[in-house]
């Protein structure tokens, strides 16, 4: 029995300190995963905490077939994707051309900032990371998920299949498709030279 399973067992006997040991082991990766899904620090913080709380509540369902890491990544993924879907339903589509109404009845024109990325900041790590994050946010969740799990989190195909509860073949084709889409976006926006 590895240390993770021992800590899980102790947690199930009411030892919260054991669970906090698990948190310390995985909190950085869970937070990074949540950040890539959510795109900002506050949401990443909330979702990472929510993922750990959900894991704590449903720890009895953890059978130990996969590693605790894979299990907490799956929870984090589901928590984040559920939240993103919930938000997508709530946000009503608006027309960018429609003028904004002010309190005094006057109308002002919307000032839309140019989201396109300048080519001179591509290789600046911070800027590139922010731009990549914007591109990831534009992608479908299924593509975004495999890019994050494979290229950001560096999980193997087997681990990704376990997290997403699908076959390795599905993972392989989904990663391939996602990378081609991402590459196309980067090329279109001239973020690669």
């Amino acid at each position: 029995m590895n240390s993770d399973q021992e800590l899980v067992k102790r947690t199930l006997h009411g030892d919260t300190y054991a669970f906090e040991e698990l948190v310390k082991t995985y909190q950085n990766k869970v937070y990074m995963l949540a950040y890539r899904y959510m795109g900002n620090e506050d949401d990443a913080n909330d979702m990472a905490q929510e993922a750990f709380i959900k894991a704590y509540r449903s720890l009895r369902s953890f059978k130990g077939d996969a590693s605790f890491g894979t299990w907490i990544y799956r929870i984090t993924t589901n928590v984040c994707l559920d939240e993103l879907r919930r938000r997508k339903r709530k946000i009503a589509p608006i027309s960018l051309d429609e003028p904004l109404a002010t309190l005094d009845g006057a109308e002002i024109e919307r000032e839309i900032s140019d989201q396109s990325l300048a080519a001179d900041v591509i290789y600046e790590k911070k800027e590139f990371s922010q731009n990549i994050q914007l591109l990831l946010d534009e992608m479908k969740p299924e593509h975004k998920t495999v890019i994050v799990l494979r290229d950001v989190m560096d999980l193997s195909y087997e681990e990704i299949a376990s997290v997403l509860d699908c076959s390795i073949g599905t993972v392989k084709s989904r990663i391939s498709r996602a990378r081609i889409i991402l590459q196309k976006k980067l090329t279109e926006r001239e973020l690669l030279n």
Binding site: Q27, N28, A44, K125, F128, R179, L192
Partner: peptide, 18 residues
């Protein structure tokens, strides 16, 4: 692109997270 994705800049875990 894959190499860059592995080295994305990620913000630090909030101090009060734990």
């Amino acid at each position: 692109i894959c190499a860059m994705l592995k080295n994305l800049d990620t913000p630090q875990l909030p101090i009060n997270f734990g």
